[in-house]
């Protein structure tokens, strides 16, 4: 039973790691090669939209920052587990 739970945890961490790597890789690829979709994405989510009030500006930057931090706090333990788990030889 314990073995099955461990295997499930390992699978979930692996899937999460693959998703994060893919998302990050796509983002880097898009930005490095200046893909049109990367620019459209940034315009679409307001990353390069002008802000007219300071409240708008702070609400926007803090919103993104907090989302990134929450995502990081969730990812870090998973990443640690993934890193600590050695592949069976």
């Amino acid at each position: 039973m314990k073995q099955v739970v461990n295997n499930q945890k390992g699978l979930i961490s692996f899937i999460l790691m693959v998703q994060i790597t893919l998302a990050f890789g796509m983002m880097l690829f898009g930005f490095i090669f200046q893909a049109e979709w990367a620019k459209n994405f940034m315009v679409g989510v307001g990353m390069i939209k002008p802000m007219h009030t300071q409240v708008d500006y702070y609400t926007y930057i803090k919103g993104i920052e907090y989302l990134m931090c929450v995502y990081y706090f969730m990812t870090f333990p998973v990443f640690y587990m993934f890193l600590s788990k050695k592949k069976k030889k």
Binding site: M42, Y57, I61, F76
Partner: peptide, 25 residues
């Protein structure tokens, strides 16, 4: 490795904080 993943995140948090996404293009 643990420090590196933290570093990547805070680098992007800094870009978000200063709203410098446009420079990436």
């Amino acid at each position: 490795t643990l420090a590196m993943i933290t570093y990547i995140v805070i680098k992007f948090v800094a870009i978000a904080h200063d709203k410098e996404w446009a420079y990436l293009l």
